[in-house]
Design a protein around this nucleic acid. Structure first.
Lengths: 209, 209, 209, 209
DNA sequence: AATGAATGAGCCTTCATTCAT
DNA sequence: GATGAATGAAGGCTCATTCAT
């Protein structure tokens, strides 16, 4: 109608990603999406085969972005010591989660997916969460002087990762504690806290060699 | 009267709590609830004024249980040192979250509320989360030799509390890591891990007096 | 509950009469009536056998009042000339219709019944409208020097009677014309107009004997 | 497409007009309308936004027809004397109200609106009733030798107009009086009666100049 | 490739009525 | 005699989906 071509598909996909994250899949109608995307009501079924297909496409998009975040977290610590890699990893995630603007929709979507699992969760686990855990376990293993598949190391990795999510809640919530701020200073302070807290936690499990 | 045991209102309320937690409010129909509760379709509107009212009632029920959990976590550490209180607090929560059977629906419900806030979330924050944070801050403050409203203390409390939720996900998820087990042994191991990790983390922020 | 006895029946009946007139039968619920009448939800079914039975009872009540209005209109002109009787008849009706306060609900109810006939309409026609027409025909016949069952006389009676209803509309409507006033002066002016207009109209059909 | 002749919107609109007039808005269900219109249950919401919107559309349709009736009543008396215009006006209305067949639904609908006003009544008053009153006042003013906004003239206009409605009732009722007939002869007789009665009534208020 | 009118299943809610007490 | 908890039928409306164009 407007431009034709494949642009419609993209507009619908991006609009859906935003709305799904904002309100949740159930609270968004196909009409809402198509209207805001300046597309026809039938566009969703035409391009994605239905609402479910659209959700899957959105999740695939999200997974792509999340994987690039994983990459970024890795790259930020490339060539550094284990402590440096952990610090860089945490800093990258805190930065993305507190959302310097875009891509925040991904975290909301992930929270919903975790609270209300769909078949897409399997993909997220396999392609996003497991790789992250693996990298994190490797780094932590080095710090703790243990093997990456040591149960202690895995638990530490979960302890580290879990702290990012407290940030998400603090954003979605009537702030429980301080730190709804997303000023560069406070973001850095949070990252520094998690790093220090986690390093101390991990070192407590360090094995003398 | 169909079964005659519980009153209709109670049957509907309990059934709704279970279904809301299992599938999410949007995916549960009033008909489903009433059918499983052996009640009439109109029972929801009669007793709760509508689906929304029913959800509110369920959340109030959940809040009641959660408050008793907070109490239990406090009582378990009564009369002990700060470290002992933290250990007891964590043990209580890990025990409840890993679910010795009942009341697991509450955690699912809470996760959904956090992912998809409704007006009920305000109540949860005020009556459940804030009191927990206060208690936790008090204990941590003592360990760290800081004031309870110190920003460092608050961040530590969030770091501690956030680790419980990793457990929740591990339950809802195709297990990312080890520890889908809820055998007494593994539950104890998890509790011990969080305690050790957190104590080390907090002590890293301790102020020399 | 409050006083028991037969008073409940009366309260329900009167409340229903008022509400039926105000909103129309379909727009009034049994719950509304019982609540406003400080009676139980089941009171309507208990005392009147159902909503239909209640409506019938209300119509019977209305018919009683309307018959007394007919009587009053007759009595007001008793012993007077035909012109005087017509003037008194019209004055009585204009007074009642413009509603010096109570009994206005009856007119609204009658309007609804005419617009949306129920079996009760037959009763109204037989016990209220026909007697009025008969009296009016008798009076008009005398003025016109014709027989009461003369088609001309009957048509004149309808012409007279119909003018009352214009008043009802002017009350229910965003006033089409002047005269929403119900001050004694304007009411008298209206009565005088209808009387003069009608007398002139009827005399135009007078037969020289 | 079921029948293919009219468009769905038109079928629904016409069916609704008929049913609303026959039974009243409250007693007609959306399902009834759609079934008789060979349309889907959702057609009403799709084309009219809901039952209320459908009613509004029906009223707009009715207003259109009523305005054309007003035009016809004017045209019928064009170029004639005031008496001739009044006679033509009355004849037109009596003809339409007694219903040579079609468009009778409009009168039923108007009666319901008057008995049970909805927001649509304002439109009817502004676009139909007021213009009619203005024309009628102009004609009567000329006959009575008074100004069109003279209170006496306005009252006369109401007296004239009100007589049409007696006809409506006579149709909806178990006939009170003669004249349920719609033979051309009786229709003409009624029109002639109203004309004569009204002319005499108006002339009684004539001012000598 | 894309549209929008039309569909039908299903949802929440309302309401007159019933029945055990 | 009177209550109020509980019922079931039905209503308006939403929404993802389809189909002819």
């Amino acid at each position: 109608m407007v431009t034709g071509d494949q642009e419609t598909r993209e507009r619908v996909l991006n609009t859906a990603a935003r709305l799904f994250a904002e309100r949740g899949v159930e609270r968004v109608t196909v009409r809402d999406i198509c209207q805001q995307a300046h597309a026809n009501v039938a566009a969703v079924n035409y391009h994605f085969g239905g609402k479910d297909g659209l959700y899957t496409a959105v999740m695939e998009l999200a997974i792509g972005v999340m994987r690039s975040t994983t990459e970024a977290a890795r790259d930020a610590g490339a060539g550094q010591s284990a402590e440096g890699r952990l610090r860089a990893y945490i800093a990258t995630f805190v930065d993305r989660v507190t959302g310097s603007g875009r891509d925040t929709w991904i975290h909301h979507l992930l929270m919903r997916e975790l609270a209300d699992p769909t078949p897409a969760l399997t993909l997220v686990v396999e392609q996003v969460l497991k790789p992250r855990m693996e990298y994190l376990c490797g780094t932590i293993a080095e710090i703790a002087g243990r093997l990456p598949d040591d149960a202690v190391v895995v638990r530490c990795a979960l302890s580290v990762q879990s702290q990012f999510h407290a940030l998400l809640w603090n954003q979605a919530l009537p702030r429980i504690a301080t730190g709804g701020d997303t000023t560069p200073a406070s973001v850095a302070a949070i990252a520094e806290h998690i790093t220090a807290f986690s390093l101390a936690g991990v070192r407590g499990f360090a094995q003398s060699r």
